[in-house]
Write a protein that binds this DNA or RNA. Structure first.
Length: 397
DNA sequence: AAGCCGGGGTG
DNA sequence: CACCCAGGCTT
């Protein structure tokens, strides 16, 4: 029993699309790609060598940087056999400025492997591709799908970000073991008729639409398939552990005050920590840093407001419909609050709004009815947590 | 699983 | 400045 529950919680089933939905997705994606896909030099060839060169260059390197290097490299070294015997010093010269120079050294070793073992012909299957120096799971899948039409998803940062948003995947993409989740889904999604185009189409989606900084989804052509778009949670995906590992959680408390000096407060609901107690609206900064960046300051509004309510945003100002403006100041120095099982770092962000704030409350209550305006003089009528009392104390310092 | 490799772009 | 980018190798 216990083990079953554990298995269930681990093997969360993200994929529940019908065959019909899968077919619709493929058709929409590839139609878009045919119309809007980027025209890149290595997309005009099926030569596995050229695709290989482009994929190695594109590792951790942006497309616009790669293009001139790619053109020059292919012109100087047009085949695998040429690469195998090219003077290493000249090789590094062709690579100069691209960085990660072991990439090109490994590529020459692999070219020599190919000449010795495969008569100079690039292997045409995943197993053999993966034996070549410098070719890992991503690059092998890219070559297999693009040059040989093998239905293998090329799972890179783009595909993980797109997939994580489509299915609201909670697994940390920085952990190698999470890869299986993405592969299981993409194995079922990939179009067996056009696997190379499918991979490149998803990469283009990740590079041009569902970009890392697109915290609020545009009205994009895959929105009907995008679970995070439907739920207004795109800014939460992909989940990626911060490099500086924190033993504690970071929160931002929004001290939102209207023109009467009343505070916007929220009663924590069933299932939340500190259930039933009233607090400044709190947002956990899983993915954002506790600093004065625009994204951090706006986190509350993207958590609780529908995107339709937000018509504009500037440095410290968010505008809602009806020209309603919200002005944010600077974060306070965080305070620490220790529970039995976790430590919170909580900073306060003072926010001023125009008027009585009824419009804001109306917007908020579309999604969450637990907000209200509270007169500081009647705070005695509300149950407050120790944390919230500390936050008030900080205010009066 | 974590550290390393490198340069450029972005907010 | 911090973070990101069509990752893979070594330890």
């Amino acid at each position: 029993m216990q083990r079953n529950e554990r298995l269930l919680s681990i093997n969360k089933q993200y994929f529940n699309w019908s065959d019909q939905q899968v077919n619709d997705f493929r058709r929409k994606l590839l139609n878009w790609y045919d119309q809007e896909g980027r025209d890149l030099p290595w997309r005009r060839t099926k030569d596995p060598y050229k695709i290989w060169v482009s994929e190695i260059m594109l590792q951790q390197t942006q497309v616009s940087t790669v293009i001139p290097y790619y053109e020059r490299f292919i012109e100087q070294i047009p085949t695998i056999k040429d690469l195998a015997v090219y003077p290493t010093e000249d090789l590094l010269n062709l690579w100069q400025g691209l960085g990660y120079y072991s990439r090109v050294r490994n590529m020459q070793i692999a070219a020599q492997q190919i000449v010795e073992l495969y008569e100079g012909q690039m292997p045409n299957n995943m197993k053999e591709l993966l034996t070549l120096k410098g070719i890992g799971p991503y690059t092998a899948a890219a070559i297999a799908s693009m040059a040989y039409n093998i239905a293998e998803p090329a799972i890179d940062g783009n595909l993980m970000r797109v997939t994580a948003r489509l299915f609201e995947i909670e697994e940390d993409i920085s952990q190698p073991k999470s890869r299986k989740i993405f592969k299981d889904i993409l194995d079922r999604l990939i179009d067996p008729d056009r696997p190379g185009d499918f991979n490149q189409a998803l990469m283009d989606v990740g590079a041009t639409i569902m970009t890392p900084s697109a915290h609020r989804p545009e009205n994009h052509f895959l929105k009907e398939f995008d679970q995070s778009y439907q739920n207004h949670t795109s800014h939460l995906y992909p989940v990626k552990k911060k490099k500086t590992k924190q033993l504690q959680q970071e929160w931002l408390a929004y001290q939102i005050q209207n023109n009467r000096g009343h505070y916007l407060m929220r009663q924590h609901q069933v299932g939340e920590l500190l259930e039933g107690l009233w607090h400044y609206p709190l947002v956990q900064l899983d993915l954002l840093a506790l600093n004065n960046s625009k994204e951090t300051k706006e986190a509350f509004f993207y958590t609780y407001l529908d995107e339709e309510s937000i018509v504009a945003e500037e440095d410290a100002i968010i505008k809602l419909k009806n020209n309603f403006e919200i002005t944010m100041k600077e974060l306070s120095t965080p305070i620490q609050h220790i529970f039995s099982h976790r430590k919170w770092q909580v900073a306060v962000l003072p926010v001023r709004i125009e008027g009585s704030g009824q419009e804001l409350l109306d917007y908020l209550q579309i999604n969450d009815s637990s907000f209200t305006w509270v007169d500081p003089l009647s705070l005695g009528d509300y149950a407050l947590s120790k944390l919230q009392i500390k936050l008030f104390d900080r205010l009066s310092e």
